[in-house]
Write a protein that binds this DNA or RNA. Structure first.
Lengths: 214, 214
DNA sequence: AGAAGCACTATTGCATGTAATCAAGAGAGT
DNA sequence: ACTCTCTTGATTACATGCAATAGTGCTTCT
């Protein structure tokens, strides 16, 4: 046993900042002042600086020379680009998952969709619903057995979730999402890779199209 | 004019390290000791540390807790994964480029392929040929008008070029590469997006398959 | 009033100090 | 010879110091 299993400070800070961003505690375009955050989180500037750089790398923050970083805000063009890439990569992830998932993994997917379906009868909760959706997509790409793919998708998902609007919680979209997730899982369970790819791509495209009409 | 247009030290170091890695000066699995590199490059440890972290983000180095970083080495599985993702992303880039490239861009592409064709009559030079190939692919994705796509591809290209073997310089592969590049450019010039995607995907797949039989 | 210049403050980018930690090799015991 | 322990040396992870720089608000001039 290597004694210290304590997490790196940098990573804790990174997680904390991610959380703040997704919470809305740090809104898009908020400045990310290293000294201020260091004081707020009771750590020195170094781990904060490194965490902020990770955010920049992930596309969750942007940086300008000698002017520090701010939380990224997605303009319409970038959003479109992100979803265009997700369309093919989520498709690929589903394709691979259809070839590689074992029964346990499929069962977990089914369970997640089931949870979402049951929540349809309850009032919408944007945070919760977005988190569930994120977890579902994460589960699929984890079964794609392709690390570079997972990492790329992870960044794109993060950027997607920067864009949070009321649209995500309309009844129509919640129902459609469950329906589309169902189709993806069914294809994966059947081992039908081509269908899984098509279903996942269509799902991502659908999310984007529905986001367009606010 | 904002006075100082001098590049950030961190970025210079980052570029220097990339260069060393692609040169073979730093071979895969070489340790990246921050103090040693700092001394070698005559800068303090901070910019080196940050540059190394950028390499890690890019997938050009890997890191283990309290043990520092080393230059990444691609095992067969990872290489396969990288190429699987490149297959769809380079396809998407070509698709977009076919829709968005202006005449000047197409002319530049044509010129690059022409240069490669002319070099066929000269003896192979792995460094030069790999660089040309990289530039060609970069040119196409720059015309895809999709920043997230470019960034993802940039990382994957970097990882691809970590894997450098004699295979790249066989006569057969050089000829096939020119031929395939030609097909891509032709499709882009014709504005035939579907064909461009297919051509680019096939090209990437071809590179991988040929790399397999060493 | 509006523009231009200026001093001030906060922050960055880089340098360096330091305790904790790990890898590696010497030496002792079996 | 083999393993185990311990020391040694190097390195990381984090803290902090500091000069240079960008933004901010005030003052002054037109």
């Amino acid at each position: 046993m290597t004694a210290s299993e304590r997490a790196l400070l940098t990573d804790s800070v990174h997680d904390a900042l991610r959380e703040m961003i997704f919470n809305g505690e740090l809104e898009p375009d908020s400045p990310l002042s290293v000294p201020a955050l260091a004081a707020r989180l009771n750590v020195s500037r170094t781990p904060v600086r490194e965490a902020v750089q990770q955010l920049i790398y992930e596309g969750l923050a942007s940086h300008t020379r000698n002017a520090g970083a701010r939380v990224a805000s997605l303009d319409a063009d970038t959003l479109k680009s992100v979803f265009q890439v997700r369309e093919v990569l989520d498709g690929l992830a589903a394709f691979n998952a259809a070839l590689g998932s074992d029964n346990a993994a499929v069962a977990q997917m089914r369970k997640m969709v089931q949870v979402q379906r049951e929540l349809l009868s309850e009032p919408p909760d944007q945070r919760r619903d977005a988190l569930l959706d994120l977890q579902f997509h994460t589960l699929i790409r984890d079964n794609a057995a392709n690390r570079p793919l997972s990492e790329a998708l992870s960044r794109l998902d993060g950027q997607s979730h920067l864009f949070r609007s009321d649209m995500w919680v309309t009844e129509l979209n919640r129902r459609l999402a469950v329906c589309e997730h169902d189709r993806i899982v069914a294809a994966i369970e059947a081992g039908n890779a081509a269908e899984a790819r098509e279903a996942a791509s269509a799902h991502v495209a659908g999310i984007y199209v529905r986001a367009q009409r606010l």
